[in-house]
Design a binder for these strands. Structure first.
Lengths: 225, 225
DNA sequence: TAAATATTTAACACTGAGTTAATAAATTTT
DNA sequence: AAAATTTATTAACTCAGTGTTAAATATTTA
């Protein structure tokens, strides 16, 4: 049974979302503010948490930051709910460990379909799908064999290098912020210096060729071909 | 469900407008003066607020100014309602963060069609697309890829340029004052010289073409096509 | 255990995005 | 039409953000 926790200070929205998700067979719990949200999160350990950003006392960002400190929630998807349309504060939100951003107002259909998409994404990421081989540009990336091949040439990457490369290749074109990369490769509890990514990026470029990984200054890196 | 708040000190008008909007399926709340308007705005967070200008105690302009301080209402459309002979400059209203100006007396047909037009404009701007792609004119703006494309041509924008462009494109036609732009791109704590925006606008025009961004002298800039 | 390899740190070089400042041009006000 | 105000343009400057390298740790392998 997939458990979902919704945290929002507006009872109407809470009820609305709860109703729609339960209709689709999810086990839904709700909280009316950030603090209650944290408590319920710890007691139920949901698969997915919907967090309103604007809330009294403790806003969604803070709740997210707290949750991300606890490895118990490493596998928990967090999505923000907001009435705002800010471009780069979205990146700030993703930096904090959010997985998605849903803008209010949202129709029940769109809402539940996004929730399901997120859950699918997660399931896909930690199960043994046969889809372990990615072919992109002139590269073949085999996750199972932990091997990158270009034509006949085998490119041997170290573990961290490979993880980093897979992350970038996983969404070609998408810009990953440094924070995002740290979170997804190193996790939330490990802290490493801020030149570490550069060094790995450099080695990757050295090994796979310098044309694939592009720097977006002030934002992050992306894979492109 | 689209929520609309009407604030006007004349009960007749209130009832008249409420009746007509509810007939068209909107969720309407009303307030008899500015202060009540603010309170109801905070409790319901409407999608659109109709504000009469001439009101006792707190006029429409003041209400608008208050609302615009709160990011909660960034996505809320505000339209002013004014008698034909009141000579308030529309510019002042738009400067305060208003989106439109409706002159009394107005026929129900015209009124609801204006409201619907405003809501359409908004819906286009904050799409809930999972991939954050905006298509406008001959441009494609991909927030995730931090990339603007015109036809086959890729237009590479720097971070600030991209943010600024996204802001303007987010509400096509809306005039953003310099203050507004500073607030939303630089934030309230950073202080930069007052020619900085011009330079960024110039670079944007250089890169995306000079026809899209229009200067409204004495007010600000807008995206148009 | 030592050797080999992977990862991180630290120190410094470099680049260009972002800003400023100065001047020109456009527009509005007087 | 002159003065004042606002915006455009240009070029120079600065420093935050990256790149690079080598040396120090950590981890794996022999």
């Amino acid at each position: 049974m997939t458990k979902i926790l919704i945290v929002d200070d507006e009872p109407d929205i809470l009820e609305f979302l709860q109703y729609n998700l339960e209709k689709d067979g999810f086990e839904v719990s709700v909280a009316i503010d950030g603090e209650e949200g944290l408590i319920k999160a710890h007691s139920t350990v949901p698969d997915l948490i919907v967090l309103d950003i604007m809330m009294p006392r403790m806003d969604g960002f803070e709740v997210c930051k707290e949750l991300r400190k606890d490895p118990k929630f490493d596998q928990t998807i967090i999505t923000f709910l907001t009435a705002k349309d800010e471009d780069y504060s979205q990146i700030a939100a993703l930096d904090l460990g959010g997985d998605d951003f849903i803008t209010k107002p949202v129709s029940p259909r769109v809402f539940t379909s996004r929730i399901k998409a997120l859950l699918r994404r997660k399931k896909g990421s930690d199960s043994n799908e046969p889809d372990q081989i990615i072919q992109i540009a002139d590269l073949v990336i085999d996750r199972e064999k932990v091997l990158v091949t270009r034509g006949e040439e085998r490119i041997e990457l170290a573990k961290k290098e490979f993880e980093l490369f897979c992350l970038l290749v996983g969404k070609p074109g998408k810009v990953f912020t440094r924070e995002e990369i740290f979170r997804k490769i190193w996790g939330t509890d490990v802290i490493v210096g801020n030149r570490t990514i550069d060094v790995h990026i450099r080695k990757l470029r050295e090994k796979v060729g310098s044309d694939y990984i592009k720097t977006i200054k002030g934002i992050g890196y992306k894979f492109e071909f």
